[in-house]
Design a protein around this nucleic acid. Structure first.
Length: 801
DNA sequence: GCATAATTCGTTTTT
DNA sequence: CGAATTATGC
């Protein structure tokens, strides 16, 4: 309760803003801050690193600090640059500052995500980096399509060098601030036989022609802009008196460079740069985040002050003990120890061993229902998983139980096909030269314009050096197209002309709804939302889904409605489109009471009374792949992820391990996660579910405090996944990307010939017991076990009885 | 050009 | 096992 920011419902007008300066008594907003928090708020000058552990009131410090700067008139709202990673965080900060300072947070134009601020800067100076200020921001879909075209043009086999992979690599370079010429030699050979610089450059050129950027460019081009135009940079040095960064541990190299350029207005020891973060919660290394940025801050900014926030106001001491004990196993960290003021140690962290994922789900379901009967809200409980496929078991179970749940972080709204299609129509209305939008919708709904027709359009556009739309306009006047396609295209163009005209007629602000053209004759202006509705209806897009009788069609129509409705809030179509490409995020429908199911990654920053952490098994968590790819650093990141998971809980924490898990369609015996060994025995209670079979492993010995029982069985229970992973890991290190696949797992169907077993034969499996073979596919056997039911297992795992 | 069968391939995710 | 993409036949 103490440090969690109280939610002031409405900003109290002037109450705080009126007590500027003269500051006799400490301002209200400082009340209720602990010593360190207050220090962090009041140390406005010079570089400052705030190491804020989980639940120590990090956001509160950040927002209060801004309020303080404003209140003491050190800077105007427009002179503070305040960056976050997510829109959600930005929104939350806006709200909280509003509550502290009163109205006028809208006057903080430079509070936003790295990317939205980057876009803002670029639009102001677009011409200096070869763009027009109305450039479009590509989404991943567009990006992939563009790359595919480039690869094809460059005669590169897309089977061997997938566009996705190239997109991913480019993302990495851009995250590291590398332009085509900067890509290291090692990286160059990793794709298309060293043709990388060429392709990357072509991609950048193509973006420029399209007057477009991708997400990475929003930062990369800013850096370029600042480096090449010192006068522009100096302008921002003058402007930004204070710079604040949230979640600094998640920053990547490009963001770091971007920040350093902006913070260089004064010599390092005087830069008013405040970064807030927690090295122990850095979980986005795989996406290019450099924990090193935060670990290095004091070196980058000599004389930087470091403040540690270690007083945790969220969790019970048992939960904190567990989390601290676990994270202490990491070597690369600045070191903090969370402490709680709460006297009661609270419940022990409960660790449960279950038979398989179904039992896990059943058990969690039961517990949830029990807590619910005790009066807990479903909203106060969450299930945090490592990998999204774990969610299914829970969803299925909760459906049969009739338990209300919500999945957070699924496919985002604007990533849905129908939303993207609709947006493509609107983009094309607002900018006829948006080729990628054009491609997307020429034949959606089906208009009989397939690959061959499209090819003609491409050729024409390339020959003329124009956009597709322009090319189409000239083409429809010639004989090059088949008559049917020609008329279809002409009609389509006419429609777009019509829509564009209507878009022009839309009043810029929400000013006039109606207009008297002549006495008695009133013409209604179309709003953007109306226009969108018309576009979707007249293009036949809405109809396409109405005629679709699949299950999801109805939902898609709903989404379209929602999209159109959400447009009402925007002044202009372009404003709306910017919002969508940059800002639009899922609305967390917290309306009704429901258990949250989400990944550990998307749980960062949230908290719940009760938290379930299922699937603590080697290979799954820590993830085998991370281990293979990033070794010890990977393991440490996984451990931080575990730490994030543990620290989400306020009162109750339940961890579970399944003894068997279905991976890649095969049942594999699982080994309890090493992280379980790293929980302190004193804060943990072990519960064995007393499963009928397979008494090996975790639950086997209860109580003890030494959780590790895997050693004696190691060789017996080596699963194929492990063996394969190991084989790959070792081969990867020595000889680049060689694919050694197959032998151990899927050898395709050969009716059991070559197998030493026959259908119908009775066999014994170490974990599932006795069973009868139902089917043989290569080295995979489908066996009906007497106790464990029907499973698919590898031949090497069974033996003749 | 389009619907359907066959095949591939499996973390985490924001912007 | 299942989604998601690609090859195949009409």
């Amino acid at each position: 309760m103490a440090a969690e920011p109280q939610r002031l419902d409405r900003p109290q007008a002037g109450s705080i803003t009126s007590q500027f300066g003269r500051g006799a008594a400490a301002p209200d907003y400082l009340k209720g801050l602990n010593e360190e928090q207050r220090d962090a708020v009041l140390t406005t000058e010079g570089p400052l690193l705030v190491l804020a552990g989980a639940g120590t009131g990090k956001t509160r410090v950040l927002t209060t600090r801004i309020a303080h700067i404003l209140n003491s008139k050190k800077a105007w709202p427009s002179e503070i640059l305040s960056v976050t990673f997510t829109n959600k965080a930005a929104r939350e900060m806006k709200e909280r500052i509003g509550a502290l300072v009163g109205a006028g947070v809208e006057g903080m134009p430079w509070l936003g995500t790295f990317h939205s601020i980057g876009a803002r800067l670029l639009r102001r100076h677009a011409e200096l980096v070869g763009l027009r200020s109305d450039f479009t921001i590509l989404d991943t879909d567009d990006q992939i399509r563009l790359i595919k075209q480039l690869l094809e043009a460059a005669n590169i086999d897309e089977k061997r060098w997938p566009a996705r992979q190239f997109a991913g690599m480019m993302d990495n370079w851009k995250n590291r601030g590398q332009l085509p010429t900067d890509v290291s030699m090692a990286d160059r050979s990793a794709f298309a036989n060293g043709r990388i610089p060429e392709l990357y450059q072509q991609y950048q050129d193509r973006l420029k022609t399209l007057n477009a950027t991708d997400f990475g460019d929003l930062l990369l081009l800013c850096i370029k802009l600042f480096r090449e135009n010192p006068d522009v940079l100096a302008e921002y040095h003058r402007r930004f008196k204070y710079i604040l960064v949230d979640e600094y541990q998640d920053s990547n190299v490009a963001q770091y460079l971007w920040l350093r350029l902006l913070a260089q207005g004064k010599p390092a020891p005087e830069a008013n740069l405040c970064v807030v973060g927690d090295d122990d919660q850095s979980i986005y290394g795989w996406r290019g985040a450099e924990v090193d940025n935060i670990l290095r801050f004091e070196k980058d900014f000599p004389g930087a002050k470091v403040i540690r926030l270690e007083r945790n106001y969220r969790s019970t001491s048992n939960i904190l003990k567990a989390a601290s004990h676990l994270i202490a196993n990491n070597e690369s960290r600045l070191g903090k120890t969370l402490q709680t003021d709460v006297g009661e140690p609270g419940e022990l962290v409960m660790v449960t061993s279950v038979w398989d994922s179904d039992e896990e789900a059943r058990q969690v379901g039961e517990e949830i229902e029990q807590f619910q009967r005790q009066g807990d809200a479903l909203n106060s409980m969450a299930i945090l998983v490592r990998a999204s496929h774990q969610m299914r078991a829970f969803e299925e179970r909760f459906i049969t139980l009739g338990l209300n749940y919500r999945v957070i972080g699924g496919p985002r709204f604007y990533e849905r096909k129908e939303v993207r299609d609709a947006l493509a129509y609107l983009r094309l209305v607002s900018n006829p030269n948006d080729d990628l939008a054009f491609e997307r919708i020429v034949n959606t709904p089906k208009r009989g314009l397939g690959d061959s027709t499209l090819q003609i359009l491409y050729d024409a556009a390339r020959r003329q050096g124009t956009s597709l739309t322009t090319a189409v306009r000239t083409l429809v006047e010639t004989e090059e197209l088949k008559p049917k396609q020609r008329t279809t295209l002409r009609q389509l163009m006419d429609q777009f002309d019509d829509w564009a005209q209507r878009a022009q007629a839309v009043p810029p602000e929400d000013a006039v709804e109606t207009e008297e053209l002549a006495p008695g004759i009133v013409r209604r202006h179309t709003s953007h939302a109306d226009l969108a509705r018309q576009v979707l209806d007249e293009s036949g897009y809405t109809e396409m889904w109405q005629n679709d009788k699949s299950a999801e069609a109805e939902g898609r129509l709903e989404n379209l409605k929602e999209l159109v409705n959400s447009m009402e809030e925007f002044d202009s179509l372009s404003g709306f489109l910017e919002h969508v490409s940059l800002v639009m995020d899922r609305d967390t429908g917290e309306a009704d009471d429901a258990v949250s199911i989400m990944t550990l990654h998307s749980a960062k920053g949230l908290e719940f009374e009760t938290v379930f952490l299922p699937g603590w098994e080697e290979g799954l968590f820590p993830s085998q792949r991370t281990l293979d790819e990033s070794g010890r650093a990977g393991l440490e990141e996984e451990r931080r992820l575990a730490y994030v998971g543990l620290t989400r809980a306020r009162k109750r924490l339940r961890v579970s391990v399944a003894q068997n898990r279905l991976t890649h369609g095969l049942w594999q015996s699982a080994i309890p996660s090493r992280f379980l060994d790293e929980l302190p025995a004193a804060a943990v209670e072990v519960k064995d579910t007393g499963s009928a079979y397979g008494g090996y492993g975790y639950g086997g010995r209860s109580g003890g405090g030494r959780f590790d029982t895997r050693d004696p069985f190691d060789s017996l229970y080596e699963t194929p996944g492990w063996q394969r992973a190991r084989a790959q890991a070792s081969s990867r290190k020595s000889a680049g990307p060689v694919t050694i696949d197959g032998d151990l797992v899927a050898r395709s169907v050969d009716d059991g010939r070559g197998s030493k077993y026959d259908v119908g034969e009775r066999v014994f499996h170490l974990k599932f017991g006795y069973g009868r073979i139902e089917q043989i596919e290569g080295n995979k056997l489908t066996i009906e076990f007497e106790k464990a039911g029907r499973k698919k297992v590898l031949e090497s795992f069974v033996q003749k009885p």
